[in-house]
Every structure is written in structure tokens, then in C-alpha cells.
């Protein structure tokens, strides 16, 4: 019963925050920022355990799996464009993934976080299930990684469009790659707001970032820990 109520409230709060966002379009009102704040205050207010909430919430999180499978559709639709720009995409993504891993490491060193947190932060820019797998692989804490992935998503959702404007990025392909690389699925949903081509580029970036990170993370981690 509680599971069902939690699903209902999550969907309701999401739906309302989405409505508000579509009216006001203010980056800090993103449903991914507003809805979790409202819901977690409700849990604290009504003394509901997270594990009870998650008995329902899990059903929604699980839908991320078919959503990722669904990214086959934009990839398939824009396969010709992707093929044409294969070189650009490979160069951008290799750079993006290396910078993501190395910069997370360097900034963690600078703010003096211990290695446990550092390792959990490294895979934060890719989609949750794979980020958690990488985290286990390199010796991080997968649940902390999941949180960092979400915070990265929210950050990228808000900052991505600002960075695109500030850097005068005009090409749809570059916009999509930037959003999908920097903020995984959350960035991709933002890219879909820009247009279907940006969305396809972002889906590709998200998938490639995940795969490249699986390969690069174990190689780069010892260097980052030096």
C-alpha cells in the first residue's frame, strides 16, 4: 500500500513541477531539482523511511532501463548523420571522457576529499547503472556514486544551456555531445528540448560516454591516485 502511495505522490509531484517549469522555464525550477526537494521534505515531515519510500520508488527507477533501451530509436533515425561525423564524435567523446575522469580526480584532490569519495566521484558523468558498476570496479562506493550522478545531472541540466550560450556553440551536433557527455540522461532530456537532432547526438554521447568510461576508468584511476 505504502509503495503505491509513494509512486502516486512521486508522479503527482513530478507532474506538477513539470507543469510549473513549462510555464516559467527558469532553470532552477527543473523538475529534477524541485520534485526531490518536495518529496524528501514530505518523507522527513511524515517520518517515512527512505526504504519504505523506495519500495515504490524502485518501480519508477526501474523504468530507466527500458528508457535506455529506447535510445536505440533516435540512434537508428540519425544513423546516417552519425556515420558521417563518426570521426568528430570519436574525438570529442574520447576527450570528454578523459577530461571527466581526470578533472573529477584533480578537483577532489584540491578540496582534499579522501580516496573513497574521490573514487566514487570519478564515474559521476555517466548513466547510473554503469556509473555504479564502474564505481565497484575501481573501489568506490556505488550508492554514493548514484547520488553524485544525480547531482551531476541537475548541475548539467542547469549549466549546460548557459555554457552553450556563453561559448556560442551553434552546431546541433556539438550541443548534443556537450549535453550527453556532461550530464548523461538528464542532459539528453534537455537536448531533446532543443530539438530531435540535438537529442540524437546527446543519446549517442550518453551511450558512448558510458562505454568509454568502462574502458578508461580502470586505466586512468591509478594515474589519478598518484
Amino acid at each position: 500500500m505504502i509503495a503505491f502511495i509513494c509512486i502516486l505522490f512521486t508522479v503527482l509531484v513530478y507532474y506538477l513541477s513539470k507543469k510549473i517549469y513549462s510555464r516559467i522555464k527558469y532553470a532552477f525550477l527543473s523538475p529534477l531539482l524541485v520534485a526531490p526537494c518536495v518529496l524528501s521534505s514530505m518523507l522527513v515531515g511524515f517520518h517515512i523511511d527512505y526504504s519504505d519510500y523506495d519500495s515504490g520508488g524502485r518501480w519508477l527507477s526501474n523504468l530507466l532501463q527500458p528508457a535506455v533501451v529506447g535510445f536505440a530509436v533516435p540512434l537508428y533515425k540519425f544513423r546516417k548523420v552519425m556515420k558521417k561525423y563518426a570521426k568528430i564524435i570519436t574525438i570529442s567523446m574520447t576527450t570528454g571522457v578523459s577530461v571527466a575522469l581526470i578533472s573529477s580526480g584533480i578537483f577532489s584532490h584540491i578540496v582534499k576529499l579522501n580516496d573513497h569519495y574521490l573514487l566514487s566521484l570519478l564515474p559521476r558523468s555517466i548513466t547510473t547503472p554503469i556509473a555504479m558498476a564502474v564505481s565497484v570496479d575501481i573501489g568506490g562506493m556505488p550508492t554514493m556514486t548514484a547520488i553524485f550522478v544525480i547531482v551531476t545531472g541537475i548541475t548539467g541540466l542547469i549549466l549546460g544551456p548557459m555554457i552553450i550560450r556563453y561559448l556560442h556553440i551553434k552546431e546541433k551536433l556539438a550541443k548534443g555531445l556537450l549535453l550527453g557527455m556532461g550530464a548523461h540522461g538528464a542532459g539528453t532530456s534537455k537536448a531533446l528540448e532543443f530539438g530531435s537532432e540535438e537529442g540524437a547526438a546527446a543519446s549517442l554521447a550518453m551511450v558512448l560516454a558510458a562505454i568509454f568510461t568502462l574502458v578508461f576508468a580502470p586505466i586512468l584511476t591509478p594515474l589519478i591516485l598518484l
Binding site: L63, A67, A186
Partner: peptide, 12 residues
């Protein structure tokens, strides 16, 4: 898709 991220964000 953002809906599916919300429960994990609440985990914070």
C-alpha cells in the same frame, strides 16, 4: 525520463 531519476535523487 526525469521522473525515473527522482527516487534516486530522494535517496540523498
Amino acid at each position: 525520463m526525469l521522473l525515473f531519476f527522482i527516487p534516486s535523487a530522494v535517496a540523498i
